[in-house]
Structures are given as C-alpha cells and as structure tokens.
C-alpha cells in the first residue's frame, strides 16, 4: 500500500470516527484491476476499502447534488478537477461550503488521455491537504479538439458534427457526470414542453448537442468527464473547448471553477456591455 493511500484511509477513518461527517466519498475497487468505482464510506471500517491508483479516474463531486440538505457535512476527497467541480457548483448556488468537508489530495495524473490537458492537479479548495502539492506538468494543447474542428470548412464541420451526433444514443451520461450540468431540472426531462423531441433523429440529437454545449458553455471546468463516460466514444469536449477558446482569445485569460467567486463571462447581464459583436 502506498503512503498516500494510507493517509487517505486514515483521514476518512478519522473523519467518520469523530462524527463530524455523515459519510465520505472516494474510490473503491471493482472486480477489474483497471476500473474503480465511486465509494461511499459510512462507517470507519469502510475506509479500508478505499483505493488510490492510476485508475481512480471517475469524478466524484457531482454526487453532492444527490444530497443537498445533509444532516452532517459530506466528506469528499478532492483532486484538482474535483475542486474545480465543487467551486463550479458553489458559484452556481447549488451546494454550500458549510456542508462540505474537503480532503485535499494533490493528483499524480491518471491513466486517461483527458488528464494530459489538466492545468490543476492540486486542489484549489480544501479543508486539509493530505500530502504536499507538486507542480502540474506542462499541459498538452488545451484546445486539441476545438483546433481540429476549426481547421475544417463550414460544410466539413456540419458533416463532422452530424456524424458525431448520428452516433449519440442520448443516454445523457455526459450530462449526468458534468458538474456544470447542475440545473434543478434539465430541459431534456421537461418532456411536455416540446423543447426536444424524444425520438432519436439527427435533428433532435443535434438539438441536444448544441444545447448541452451552450448551457455548459463558459462554465466547463475542462475535466473531460463527458468524453470519458460516453459509451459511444464521441469527441464532445470539442464543443465547450471552442467556447472557452473564443472567450480566452476575445476577452483574455479565463478558467472556470478556479474559485467560487469570479463572474462567468457568458452568464452575466451587464448594462455597460459593449455588445460589439451584436
């Protein structure tokens, strides 16, 4: 067992023994060595089931939305991406800081392509840090998907996104894992409104694709979980990457979820907005 895992088990055990938290969320083993599953620890002895390895990949912050009014604070292990997810949901007024007990764990990078563009391995918000921070290695091209799409012609882009969304089975895994997809009720589930047809067709699939992209928009924390969970392997990070790239090029350096206070760029109404592009 590595030292860090021992520290995590100790921290979870201590938190549960003290009674300060109701439960702690981390990662547990599955029957498969290359898969871990989010683990909910309720008793001190559950901490022994915690794992921490290169496959501790799934985002775990989104589960906080399942328990908005907990009796006791919820313990959560937070890597850089989880901390940005939590900042995101706090800024969006969906979760409260006092309901969280954040156990900071600087991440060592995981066995996943998406982690190569990570800009924050170290947690940005936490109550205690379980081991020393280490610098995040120079990330690969932040906009790798968007750049590839931008290089296409307009017709090429239409063909590209049509092919992508013809494959979409609309399981909504991308929506459900995404910390920025945190609406109390998703427009997709408001079936009586007719916003989006329930049948699977190119037009309704594209409606979902484009709506998800713009609803997440500038609030995307770039964790890449949407692509990881897609059972069809669709490259949907390209959508929000394009929006983030435009913001960064038009108005300057911008990242979502690095704190819980900074204003969004798109979700803000300002009378002094110059509306230069309108």
């Amino acid at each position: 067992m590595n030292d860090n895992l021992a520290k995590m088990r100790e921290a979870a055990k201590r938190a549960l023994e003290s009674g300060d938290v109701g439960y702690v969320i981390g990662w547990g083993a599955t029957k498969f060595p290359d898969k871990t599953s989010p683990l909910f620890m309720r008793k001190p002895e559950d901490a022994e089931r915690l794992v921490w390895n290169e496959y501790a990949i799934p985002g775990i912050a989104k589960y906080l939305l399942d328990d908005l009014y907990p009796d006791k604070p919820i313990g959560v292990f937070v890597r850089g991406c989880d901390s940005r997810a939590i900042n995101r949901m706090m800024k969006d007024n969906r979760i409260k800081r006092e309901n969280l007990r954040l156990l900071g764990i600087p991440c060592d990078g995981k066995d996943d392509e998406r982690c190569t563009i990570c800009r924050n391995r170290n947690p940005l918000v936490y109550d205690e840090l379980l081991w020393d921070e280490a610098p995040t290695p120079e990330p690969k091209d932040r906009y790798f998907r968007a750049n590839a799409v931008e290089a296409m012609s307009a017709d090429g882009r239409y063909a590209y996104w049509s092919e992508v969304f013809d494959q979409c089975i609309r399981c909504y895994a991308c929506r459900n894992i995404c910390p920025a997809c945190n609406c109390k009720e998703c427009y997709v589930d408001m079936t009586a409104t007719g916003f989006q047809g329930k049948q699977h067709s190119r037009s309704d699939n594209l409606i979902f694709g484009v709506t998800r992209a713009f609803h997440v928009g500038d609030r995307c924390i770039e964790c890449g979980e949407c692509e990881r969970v897609c059972p069809m392997g669709l490259p949907i990070m390209g959508q929000t990457q394009k929006i983030l790239k435009d913001i960064n090029e038009l108005v300057g350096d911008y990242e979502s979820g690095v704190d819980a206070e900074s204003e969004n760029y798109l979700g803000v109404f300002d009378l002094d907005d110059k509306d230069e592009f309108m």
Binding site: F40, R170, C171, Y172, P231
Partner: peptide, 13 residues
C-alpha cells in the same frame, strides 16, 4: 445505487 449517475447508458447498450 450510491454511485449510480442516473443516466440511461446501461439500458441503451
């Protein structure tokens, strides 16, 4: 069901 995200992935595949 602790870790279930409530998506339809399992049923559609």
């Amino acid at each position: 069901s602790d870790a279930c995200l409530g998506c339809g992935c399992c049923s559609y595949i």
